[in-house]
Simulated assay, not measured.
Amino acid sequence: MLPLRLFLLSLLIAASTVLHVLPLLLVALLKALLPSERLRRACNGVLTGMAESWIGVNGWMWDRFTQTRIDLGEDAPLARNGHYLVLANHQSWVDILVLQKVFNRRIPFMRFFLKRQLIWVPLLGLAWWALDFPFMGRYTPKQIAKRPELAGRDIESTRRACEKFRALPVAIMNFVEGTRFTPAKHAAQGAPYRRLLKPKSGGVAFVLDAMGDGLHAILDVSIAYPGGSPTLLDLLSDRIPEVRVRVRQRAIPDEILRGDYQHDRAFRARFQQWMNALWSEKDAELATLLGDDAPRA
């Protein structure tokens, strides 16, 4: 029965994706052709509504076809028209679906920073482009050493993306670790955290600098899987008994809101200290959510 279940669910997901993405691309094309900025802004609402509808269908399938329970805790009310920076730990591609299910239509539509190669994903790559998702090069230290000019490209991409969002309700999502947690990566890093990789502060600093007062709060999200880190196949196969999510709304400290992360060593040190303290709190919260005897995420 499992192969039949997976086939039917995959068919349903594909049908929903096509039915949402094709009209979305048509509206994106219309937006590009319109001469009026006011009309182009009106198209943004239509595009966002289509994306939220697609996420809503995914959420309905989660409820209808799985027994996976989300244990959600929040320390403050959320605003549909807010301006948030969303920070979360990252273990699995399921994390994205969890975040979308928890936040869809409760905060502004979330934009993720994506690897540039993902623009070639059939249908979805164009949809992400149409929805103004920022695409990043994520160059390696070796590439930057050979071509130093690459170091500034992602910074400029971040600034351009954030300029579009300043006047709109927005939720900018950042997986601060930069990659999914695995025991091998954790061991290679020698990370001081039990269940997290080291945070990469640069991306967060550039978003805060580019957005300035355009963001009013940070949503600090901790995601824990008591049964161990799952795959998308586990979700489709209904093998994830529970997901535990905690959302803490944090004010943005004035001392990290403005500064030159790239060139000011003192500011960079302060920012990294703040980020490391945030990550230490998250590590402790994950330990609480999972318990001392829980399997490592």
Rank of each mutant, 00 (worst) to 15 (best):
R5F: 08
S16Y: 01
L22F: 13
A28L: 07
P35H: 08
N44I: 11
V46E: 09
T48V: 15
V57Q: 05
N58A: 12
W62S: 04
I70M: 13
E74Y: 00
A79C: 11
R80I: 06
G82T: 04
N89L: 05
N89R: 08
H90L: 06
L97N: 07
Q100I: 02
Q100P: 00
R105N: 11
F112T: 08
K115Q: 09
L118F: 13
P122V: 13
G125Q: 09
W129C: 07
P141D: 04
Q143K: 10
A145E: 15
R147T: 15
P148K: 11
G152K: 10
E156T: 14
T158C: 14
C162F: 00
F165L: 14
F175D: 00
V176H: 02
G178K: 03
A188R: 15
A188E: 13
Q189R: 07
G190I: 00
G190L: 02
G202C: 06
L208P: 00
L208G: 03
G212R: 10
H216C: 13
A217E: 12
Y225N: 01
L233F: 11
D234R: 04
S237R: 08
P241F: 02
V243H: 00
V247Y: 00
R250T: 00
P253I: 07
P253E: 01
D254N: 08
E255T: 10
L257V: 02
H263M: 01
R265L: 07
A266C: 07
F271G: 01
Q272R: 14
N276W: 04
W279P: 04
T288A: 13
T288R: 14
P295S: 11
R296S: 13
